[in-house]
Amino acid sequence: MKVTKAATLADDLVRQLETRIETGALNPGDRFPTEKQIEDDFGVSRTVVREAFARLSARGLLESRRGAGAFVAPAAHYRAFQLAPEEVEAIEDVLKLLEMRMGFESEMAELAAKRRSASDLAAMREALAAMDSSEEVDGSVMADAAFHAAIARATGNDYFERFTSFLGVRLVPSRKLYLQADDPETHKAHARTINQDHEAIYAAIEAGDPSRAFRAARAHMQKSFERYESLSTRG
C-alpha cells in the first residue's frame, strides 16, 4: 500500500493550517481563506483543499457554515487529543502511531507485572485462548484488543485502560487491512508469531517480573512496526 501524492499534500496543508491556528494567525471564529485562495497560495488542487478541510473538521478545528464558508472552530485552542479514522488509513500514519505506542505499551506491561490480580491474569488467558482458536480475521482482531485491554486493567490505572481502548478502536481497521492482505496460510503464520509474542508478555506479567514484561512488550511492538513497515514496500 502506498501513500498517494494527494494524501501527502493534504497532510502538509493540514499541518500549515494548524500552525496558523496555533500561532494565532487564525483565531477561533475567523474565516478560513476560500478554497480558491488556498489553491493559489499553496499551489494545490481543490481536491487536496477539500481533503484538508475534512481532516480539520474531524479534528474539531473547522466548522462549515452554509453559504458563509469555513471558520475556525470556537474551541480550536482547547481541543483534546483526537484521531479520526481517516487519519490512520495510510501505513505511514499507522507507523507513527506504533512508534508512540511502543513506549506506552512497554510501561503498561511493566506496571501490570507489579499490580496484576488473579482476575486480570484470567482475562489475559481468556484472550490468549480466543486468539489461539480463532480462524478468521475479525475474531483475531477482537481477541488481540481484549488482551491489551486486560493488561491495561491490570495496571490499576484507569487512564491506561481508557487510552488503550481509544487507540485500539482506531487500529482495528488497519490491523484488518494487514491481515487480509495475505492468503489464509500466511495469515495463520502471522497469527502464530503474534500469539507467541503475547504469550511471552503474559508469562512475564504472571511471574511478576516488571523488567521482563517491559522487554517483551517492547519487542512485540517493534515486530508490529516492522510488519506494517513491510507493507509500504509492497506494490
Rank of each mutant, 00 (worst) to 15 (best):
V3L: 13
A6N: 14
A6V: 14
D11W: 15
L13H: 01
V14C: 03
L17R: 00
T19F: 12
T19L: 15
I21R: 05
I21Y: 06
E22Y: 09
T23W: 02
L26Y: 11
N27D: 15
N27W: 09
P28S: 06
G29Q: 03
Q37N: 09
Q37R: 14
D40Q: 15
D40F: 08
D41E: 15
G43H: 09
S45D: 11
V49P: 07
V49Q: 01
R50N: 12
R55K: 13
R55Y: 06
R55M: 07
R55H: 06
L61D: 09
L61V: 04
R66Q: 15
G67Q: 14
A68P: 05
A68T: 10
G69V: 08
F71Y: 14
P74A: 10
H77P: 02
Y78H: 11
A80M: 10
L83Q: 10
P85H: 09
P85R: 13
E86N: 14
E87I: 04
E89V: 15
I91S: 09
I91E: 10
E92F: 05
D93W: 02
V94Y: 00
L97M: 12
L98E: 04
R101I: 05
M102A: 10
E105H: 05
S106F: 02
S106H: 03
M108F: 07
M108I: 04
A109W: 00
L111M: 07
L111F: 03
A112E: 02
R116P: 01
A118I: 08
D120Q: 01
A123E: 09
A123Q: 10
R125P: 04
R125F: 02
E126G: 05
A127T: 08
D132Q: 13
E135N: 08
V137I: 13
V141A: 09
M142T: 03
A143Y: 03
D144R: 06
A145D: 10
A146E: 10
F147N: 00
A149Q: 12
I151H: 01
I151S: 01
A154V: 02
G156D: 06
G156P: 00
Y159L: 15
E161A: 15
S165C: 04
S165M: 07
G168C: 06
V169K: 14
V169G: 04
V172P: 00
P173S: 05
K176P: 00
L179M: 11
L179P: 04
L179Y: 14
Q180P: 00
A181I: 01
D183M: 06
E185P: 00
K188D: 15
A189M: 10
D197C: 11
H198V: 12
E199H: 13
A200P: 06
I201R: 09
I201Q: 13
D209C: 01
F214Q: 10
F214W: 15
F214K: 11
R215G: 03
R215N: 14
R218E: 15
M221I: 14
M221H: 01
K223Q: 13
K223Y: 01
F225L: 07
R227F: 07
R227Y: 12
S230C: 05
S232N: 06
T233H: 14
G235T: 05
